[in-house]
């Protein structure tokens, strides 16, 4: 886990930042210099809605080393209340209790730990309300 990468991505991970296009008006995630819809660089930062509902979900049991501490975990595509769709972990729940359409809110959690001595990567996940 490299300090420069952690540092560069921290705002996007902590605050769930996307962009709002000043030209075509569309909002998108993740943070980018260009609008994925019309290609302009006339975009501004946009903080995603904090609540939404589950569109699809699955259970992840084969996790990468950094995320194995928390496996198995549920991963979902969430449609936020501003219409943007994001992928994120759905935590503090059993896979068997999840349902499409379930209401969720964004929470601040540990995404990965670099062993016992390395850095801790924080960011947003989702939990049922």
């Amino acid at each position: 886990m490299e300090p420069p990468k952690i540092w560069r991505e921290k705002r996007q991970r902590y605050l769930a930042l996307g962009i709002s296009c000043k030209k075509c008006g569309k909002r998108s995630f993740p943070l980018s210099e260009y609008c994925p819809y019309c290609g302009t660089n006339d975009v501004e930062e946009y903080r995603l809605a904090e609540t939404g509902k589950i569109l699809y979900f699955t259970n992840v049991s084969m996790a990468s080393n950094e995320m194995a501490f928390n496996a198995p975990y549920c991963l979902g595509i969430i449609e936020l209340n501003d219409g943007i769709k994001v992928t994120g972990q759905i935590i503090d729940c059993d896979y068997k209790d999840l349902k499409n359409g379930m209401e969720v809110k964004m929470v601040f959690r540990i995404l990965a730990r670099d062993g016992h001595e390395g850095l801790i990567k924080y960011g947003f996940k989702f939990t049922s309300i």
Partner: peptide, 16 residues
């Protein structure tokens, strides 16, 4: 605490 929680994540949630 959950597996992905610590003093920092709890502090952020209460502060928010």
């Amino acid at each position: 605490l959950g597996l992905d929680e610590d003093v920092v994540t709890m502090a952020v949630e209460s502060a928010r």
